[in-house]
Amino acid sequence: RRGADSYSNVSGNPWPLEIIRPIRGTTADLKYRLSILTFLDYSDSVPVIKWEFLPDEIESILDYECSKASCEFAGRKYTAWFTSDIPLPFGPYKFGGLPGLILKIEDSEHQYVWEAIGFENTNVPIMKYTYQDGNDKRCSVSDIEKTLARYFNSPIGFLIASMGGDGNRIHVVGKDGKRMNNADAAKQSIPYKPLEIK
């Protein structure tokens, strides 16, 4: 709207999770965006992460000298690079608590990697976007886990069920270029490794 830039799935999927994390406090508001224009709203705790500093390992990211630290979070081991030149104790997702901004963090399997690619000075205020399509569903963390497992197990089946017989039709084209029937399409799954294992 109003000429604003938006993410496109053509060049790659955007991170499907929006997180509003308070400067102080232990709870964040999250919105998980599924590819079918369904938004799952929930609140979750922001953990206090126990970091192990690795003082002899320095890396340059975006011309900032970054120190290295490691931690365990939600069943995965992570390595983070942070810069004390930007003394903000934040990072992507729920990561934070270091004496500087996290510019890169990755898990030991390289399934989840976040890296800053640039900074921009702007006077534009940070605003929380409100979706107007009415597809927001308020739920619990447990509901999110179950819904995501169902969604990735059968995205087309999930879409068919969520359209609820409104007379909408779904046409899925297979790799061979031919239209699949809905029963075969519903058997297709997407590999899924949750970010938080426990």
Rank of each mutant, 00 (worst) to 15 (best):
R2E: 10
R2Y: 09
G3T: 12
G3M: 09
A4E: 13
D5V: 12
N9A: 11
N9D: 14
P14I: 11
E18F: 06
E18M: 07
R24W: 02
G25R: 05
T26G: 10
T26K: 12
T27I: 15
T27C: 03
D29N: 03
L30F: 03
K31W: 03
L34C: 04
L34S: 06
S35M: 08
I36K: 07
F39W: 04
F39D: 02
L40I: 07
L40S: 02
D41K: 09
D41N: 15
S43K: 15
S45V: 07
V46C: 04
P47W: 07
P47H: 06
V48F: 01
V48C: 05
I49V: 11
K50S: 06
E52F: 06
L54Y: 04
P55E: 04
D56L: 09
I58E: 11
I61Y: 08
D63E: 12
Y64W: 10
E65W: 06
C66W: 05
C66A: 03
S67R: 11
S67F: 05
S67N: 11
K68G: 04
K68T: 15
K68Q: 14
S70H: 02
C71A: 13
R76V: 08
Y78F: 15
Y78S: 12
T79N: 14
T79M: 15
T79G: 07
A80E: 06
W81R: 15
F82T: 13
F82L: 10
T83S: 13
D85V: 05
D85K: 09
D85H: 08
I86V: 14
L88M: 08
P89W: 05
P92D: 04
K94V: 11
K94W: 02
K94M: 08
F95V: 01
F95W: 05
G97Y: 06
P99Y: 11
G100R: 10
G100W: 11
K104A: 13
E106W: 06
E109T: 11
H110Y: 11
H110K: 14
Y112D: 14
Y112G: 13
V113F: 02
W114F: 12
E115T: 04
G118T: 10
F119V: 12
T122Q: 00
P125W: 04
Q132A: 03
G134S: 00
S142E: 15
S142W: 03
I144S: 01
E145C: 01
E145K: 15
K146H: 09
T147R: 10
L148T: 02
F152Q: 00
N153S: 11
S154Y: 00
P155L: 00
I156A: 00
F158T: 00
I160P: 00
A161L: 06
S162E: 15
S162V: 07
M163A: 05
M163D: 04
G164P: 00
N168Y: 08
R169M: 06
H171N: 08
V172C: 01
V173T: 12
V173Y: 01
G174P: 03
K175M: 14
K178Y: 07
A186V: 11
Q188T: 10
I190H: 00
I190P: 00
L195S: 07
E196D: 15
E196T: 12
I197N: 12
I197C: 12
